[in-house]
Structures are given as C-alpha cells and as structure tokens.
Simulated scan of single mutants.
Amino acid sequence: MLLTRHEGDERLIEAMLAGATSYLLKGTSPSELVLAFERTARGESALHPRAAAAMVHALSVSTAGSESAVDALTGREAEVLHLIDAGFPNAVIAQRLAVSKKTVKNRVSSILAKLQLAHRTQAAVFAWRRRMSRPGL
C-alpha cells in the first residue's frame, strides 16, 4: 500500500508496476484508511478516486505506440523495452546488457520516439499490454 501526496499519472503507474496494490492520497480520512488496509490485507486493491482516474488516463494515453512502430525497433531496443517491461531501472539494464547508463538512456529515448510515447512508464505499460495481448512474446 502506498500513501502519498502525489497525484500524477507517472508515479501512480510506476508504483503499480513496482507491485503496489493500493494507492491512497495524503488527505484520505482515517476511516477510509482503515478500510483500505483491510481491503489490501484481503488481497484487494484500494485506489483513491483521483488515483483511479489518473490510472485510466495513463492507460489510455499508453495506447499511442503502434504495432508497426514496434517493428521499427532494433533488436537491442526491443531488448531494452523488454527489460523496462520487467521493471528494471536504467542502471540495472545497463549492467545486464554490459553497456553504459548513457547508452541505455539513449536507447530509451529512441524507443519513446519510435513508439510515440512520452515517458518510460508509458513504454512499460505499452510492453505489458503487448505481452498480455500476445502471450509468449
């Protein structure tokens, strides 16, 4: 469970991709907080309404990348996208691929441009959706 003052799409998606099941804003009332803890303990999610709206917006924006754009990715870019999808930060991707963090940043920028996405969180959501729609990829 994450209790935060941040309402932005990017932080919410990053938290969810990192494994957060509940996302509440700082102004959540004590009674709502108790209910959220109970729901989370049962394995359910608890999202503040503004956080839920931000999640829906972020997911709708993440559909910008197209299948044909994926074909334009180089093999190494596809590999970096796969590692982003797996939740790895640039430093870990650099280590796994035996390249510099600067090289990874350049590849991420290229991926974002080719897929017409604004940030790596959208790239992760795009890759996740692609994997969900095409199991085994």
Results as ranks from 00 to 15, higher is better:
V56Y: 09
G19L: 02
E10D: 12
L97V: 03
E32R: 13
R120Y: 07
L47Q: 09
S109D: 14
L24V: 08
T63R: 13
I111C: 03
E79V: 01
L97R: 14
E38C: 07
V70N: 06
A20W: 02
V34H: 02
Q122G: 07
K102P: 03
A69T: 03
M55Y: 03
S22C: 06
L81R: 04
A91I: 07
R39C: 10
A123I: 12
V80A: 04
S110Y: 06
T4N: 02
G19M: 10
T21L: 12
R120V: 07
N106I: 05
R96Y: 06
R130G: 05
E14G: 11
A46I: 00
R50S: 07
L12F: 01
F126Q: 12
R120G: 13
A113Y: 05
E38T: 10
T103H: 09
S29K: 04
H57W: 10
K105W: 12
G136P: 07
G19V: 07
V56A: 11
H57R: 14
W128Y: 12
S100V: 06
L3G: 12
D71G: 13
D71K: 13
Q95R: 08
K26E: 13
R107D: 15
Q95P: 00
G65W: 06
T103V: 11
L25I: 09
A69G: 12
G75P: 13
A118W: 08
R50T: 10
S68A: 15
N90P: 08
L73Y: 05
M1T: 08
S29V: 00
H119F: 01
L137N: 10
A69N: 04
L81T: 00
H57Q: 12
I13M: 14
A64K: 11
E14N: 08
R96C: 06
A51C: 10
A94M: 05
V80S: 01
F126T: 10
E77W: 08
A94H: 00
L115W: 02
G27L: 04
S22M: 07
Q116Y: 04
S110L: 04
A124Y: 09
A15Q: 01
S68L: 15
K102D: 13
V61M: 04
H119R: 11
E14W: 02
H82W: 12
A18T: 06
Q122A: 12
E32Q: 12
A41M: 02
T103N: 09
